[in-house]
């Protein structure tokens, strides 16, 4: 899609006198599609898919490099990480990952990737520059969620069958503590100030908020949606606003995103999105929330100022991860 084409379209809309609700946002959204082995590129202004990038098999975890010129994608069935060049929208390189990578996190300095090897009870530490695995940390059964503290010193990994959040010292690669959470923990997300980590438990149906310094559970958030069986409430993706006021949790087959007061932990409301909502991403200005809906094969766009879903966009098969570039 050429720039002039987009400009012409906007011009045409203006000529027609159509009120465009949002200012044209320059965000670009990237969605990994687990089943179609692609990454969809969505224009945040037009809210349309503008490109589809072919990657390795079973892409799930997706993240930018430090300056957002590259995208790393875990391609689990190929046991590696694909590197996408953002400018050319092509896979240009690959990194080792250890077996069956599912999720990973970039250290805040941008030098390392910490990768959960789901099949091997292990976290691999990948040095990006040398493209080498420089460390392996034994964790619980079926490692999944990965979170890193803003100062890069503490890594948190969750293990789905062990049901723990493992706190790992990134200097020594040693586990310093293990915190038991509810069944099948998925995502670990640090708060902006680095004091707490939020861990979602998919089968347990809760989110545990853990104090990072004491490793004590400070709160457990439960959910209840009228008319939705309790077993269908399966928290996965977590996003926190940078001011520390609001949190959003994807509830899987409940097809809802919970909006939470991040100070009081009170669930304020539930937003209906697509089927089996999996992961979430806030736009850089935090005015929008993007969700991947694994069963309905689309992405929901939530306008956070108006507090509602404004659009669903078809992406690839079984959309999984989502990231946004300003």
């Amino acid at each position: 899609m050429s720039l002039t084409g987009g400009a012409a379209r906007i011009g045409a809309l203006a000529l027609l006198g159509l009120a465009v609700a949002q200012p044209a946002q320059a965000d670009t959204i990237y969605v990994s599609n687990e089943k179609s082995n692609t990454v969809s590129v969505v224009d945040g202004g037009k809210l349309q898919v503008i490109a589809t990038i072919k990657v390795g098999r079973r892409p799930r975890g997706i993240t930018f490099n430090e300056d957002m010129t590259q995208i790393f994608v875990c391609v689990g069935d190929d046991n590696r990480i694909d590197v996408i060049d953002v400018a050319t929208q092509k896979v240009v390189d690959r990194l080792p990952s250890g077996p069956d990578p599912e999720l990973f996190v970039l250290d805040p300095q941008g030098h390392r990737l910490y990768v959960a090897n789901e099949d091997d009870n292990m976290v691999s530490v990948v040095d990006i520059a040398s493209k080498k695995i420089i460390g392996e940390i034994q964790v619980g059964v079926e490692p999944e969620g990965m979170g890193v503290s803003p100062d890069g010193k503490i890594l948190v990994n969750t293990s789905e069958t062990t049901n723990m959040a493992h706190f790992i010292d990134t200097e020594s690669h040693k586990i310093i503590d293990n915190v038991l959470v509810d069944a099948r923990p998925r995502v670990a997300q640090f708060t902006g100030d680095g004091r707490f980590v939020w861990v979602s438990s998919e089968v347990g149906g809760t989110v545990s908020v853990i104090d990072v310094s004491s490793r004590k559970l400070v709160h457990k958030i439960s959910f209840a949606v009228q008319g939705v069986p309790r077993e269908s409430i399966q928290p996965v993706g977590i996003q926190l606003t940078s001011d520390g006021q609001r949190a959003f949790v994807a509830l899987g087959p409940a097809n809802r995103v919970a909006e939470i007061d991040a100070k009081t932990y009170e669930v304020k409301r539930y937003h209906l999105v697509g089927q089996r909502v999996w992961n979430l991403a806030l736009s850089p200005d935090e005015k929008r929330l993007y969700t991947t809906n694994g069963v309905s094969n689309d992405m929901s766009v939530m306008d956070l100022e108006r507090g509602r879903v404004v659009k669903s966009i078809s992406v690839g098969g079984a959309p999984w991860g989502v990231i946004v570039k300003p």
């Binding site: 069944a183 099948r184 347990g204 269908s232 399966q234 087959p253």
Partner: peptide, 9 residues
């Protein structure tokens, strides 16, 4: 509650 790869405890 036992998680056992059936999507619920």
């Amino acid at each position: 509650t036992l998680p056992a790869f059936k999507g619920q405890g």
